[in-house]
Measured scan of single mutants.
Amino acid sequence: MPSETPQAEVGPTGCPHRSGPHSAKGSLEKGSPEDKEAKEPLWIRPDAPSRCTWQLGRPASESPHHHTAPAKSPKILPDILKKIGDTPMVRINKIGKKFGLKCELLAKCEFFNAGGSVKDRISLRMIEDAERDGTLKPGDTIIEPTSGNTGIGLALAAAVRGYRCIIVMPEKMSSEKVDVLRALGAEIVRTPTNARFDSPESHVGVAWRLKNEIPNSHILDQYRNASNPLAHYDTTADEILQQCDGKLDMLVASVGTGGTITGIARKLKEKCPGCRIIGVDPEGSILAEPEELNQTEQTTYEVEGIGYDFIPTVLDRTVVDKWFKSNDEEAFTFARMLIAQEGLLCGGSAGSTVAVAVKAAQELQEGQRCVVILPDSVRNYMTKFLSDRWMLQKGFLKEEDLTEKKPWWWHLRVQELGLSAPLTVLPTITCGHTIEILREKGFDQAPVVDEAGVILGMVTLGNMLSSLLAGKVQPSDQVGKVIYKQFKQIRLTDTLGRLSHILEMDHFALVV
């Protein structure tokens, strides 16, 4: 994948999101292997301009796509893939009243899908469409860049269908997702969380590099694949309309690839034109409109599966009536509230959605109805927002919020430890010299600072030695090549209790 991002070429006709291997024109390309080798690009942008032909009021008969309808489940399912879809609609009884809503608040519980998330729908649909058009064949390999849930859905379907599955996901995604993927037989590649989507090191860039190296491999490409919004247009939206008897006044959905909100909203605009569509985008993402909503100094966020630093091709923002931004604290607070007060075992993005819903639905009156999409299960986040310690460490809970008995030293300040200034190293000294210094002084790690004293990161003896043994660096290389740029900081005025929580999850903390 090139470091400079080429513009994806656009073909003359058809839909841009065809499933299957992508040609340089962004659509299915038939021909000899030699032709494909000559024409197939190194990668295709996940934010390529959409060429979708959908228009409100256009006859369904003019759609270029294969459409399906929700099917009634048999008493005995032939395999677990038949437990994807037909998820329950559940009334939220307490939270709406707590925040003064007059309307009825309903939750579409997508964590009841077989793999635990709304992404099971698009995973199965992308595979079925690729099999139907002859792209996927027995023994082929599926590769997908994902925040985890699409990966789980694909790995689940691949396990049943017999495909090899490789999932490329950023490091910030939970260990629970990784464990589930491994249990399903998927191979996992992790990428830096802070890598831009168009960087060769991003999950998108690495996935395309693997595709170019592995024979008979395919990126189904949830960011561009029409099967993504079509899955929701054909099934999720129809289920909502049936469950609500066609009567709903507002739908609120958090947005990642945009397939969920695009597919549902398009069908609702056709069948229930008075329904307002509300999009939820986390602070630090750029999906919301108008652009002024996205202006923030924050560039990272903890909530998973929603928000991006690019506009995915499948996201149709014209069908969203209003956007709201959400933050991590309210997302996790509301997710825990949904679990504790409503018994809905949902993930953090569901918290984002409901946090926005109780604001947006203030305009609705008694007798009206708001539906929220709860995308995934708490299963993926047992060591994250479900953990009091994690919430404390991230600053989303305060010590006084917890009532468990603490040891005698818990409320003492870090400054009472009488710490001395640490050994520091410059980023320009060599790895070999740094190892000598650390061994001589008896230290395992040291902060790396520039000549102005600005902290650049941390270097550890173990990481340097393993990097040297693996051949990633040489003793003569500058130590700046092996620094940890993500590390926890703590102030002298913070409590030892807070430091204790940090050290339970990290090997060190830097006192500043």
Rank of each mutant, 00 (worst) to 15 (best):
G246A: 04
I142L: 10
F197P: 07
G57P: 09
A24W: 05
D221V: 02
G26E: 10
E40P: 11
E213F: 08
P88A: 06
I142K: 02
P88T: 08
D221I: 02
G31N: 12
A183F: 02
A183E: 04
E104H: 06
F99C: 12
G116A: 14
L101T: 04
K72D: 09
V255M: 10
K82H: 10
R266V: 06
E239D: 05
M173A: 05
A38K: 11
N225C: 03
D86V: 15
L101M: 06
P192G: 08
G14Y: 12
P70M: 12
E201I: 06
L248D: 04
A38W: 03
S123A: 12
C272V: 15
D79P: 04
D86M: 10
M89S: 01
V10N: 12
P273Q: 08
S227M: 07
N113C: 07
R45D: 10
H203E: 05
S23K: 10
R45E: 11
A155E: 02
N225F: 01
I122K: 01
T141G: 12
C165A: 05
S117N: 06
D249G: 13
T262H: 05
L210C: 08
F99P: 03
H17R: 08
K172Y: 03
M169H: 01
V160E: 09
A8W: 05
I219D: 00
S123Y: 07
W43T: 08
T135Q: 10
E128S: 07
G85I: 03
D129R: 04
E37C: 08
D238G: 10
P41F: 05
A183P: 05
E128F: 08
P145E: 03
G263K: 02
E176S: 07
C15H: 10
K30Q: 11
K269F: 02
K137Q: 11
V160Q: 14
K247Q: 15
P70C: 11
K83M: 07
E4Q: 14
H67W: 04
P33D: 10
R51S: 14
L248R: 02
G11S: 15
K72E: 11
W54M: 07
Y163D: 01
Q7V: 15
Q7R: 02
N149R: 04
K82T: 05
S50P: 09
I80M: 10
L154M: 06
E270W: 03
Q55L: 06
T68W: 09
L248C: 09
T191Y: 02
T68K: 11
T135A: 11
R209A: 08
E239S: 01
V118R: 03
R132P: 09
D79V: 14
E29A: 12
S73D: 05
K108L: 02
G162M: 01
G57Q: 09
G57F: 09
G85Y: 03
A157Y: 07
V206E: 05
G116P: 13
S32C: 03
E176F: 01
G274S: 05
D140E: 10
P6E: 10
P59C: 13
A195C: 13
G85F: 04
V252W: 09
Y233E: 02
D179T: 08
A226I: 09
P49M: 07
T150G: 04
A186M: 00
I167T: 11
E171Q: 10
I142V: 13
K36F: 15
G151P: 00
E131Q: 14
G162H: 07
I240C: 00
F197Q: 06
Y223A: 01
I95G: 00
R132N: 13
V118W: 06
R121H: 01
K172N: 05
A71F: 12
R91D: 08
E270Q: 11
L181A: 00
H232Y: 03
P200F: 06
A237E: 07
Y223N: 02
A158W: 01
G246S: 07
K108I: 00
I188F: 05
K25S: 09
Q242G: 15
P6T: 11
N212Q: 13
S254G: 07
P192V: 07
L56R: 15
A8R: 12
E9S: 05
K271P: 05
S227C: 09
G162A: 01
I80Y: 01
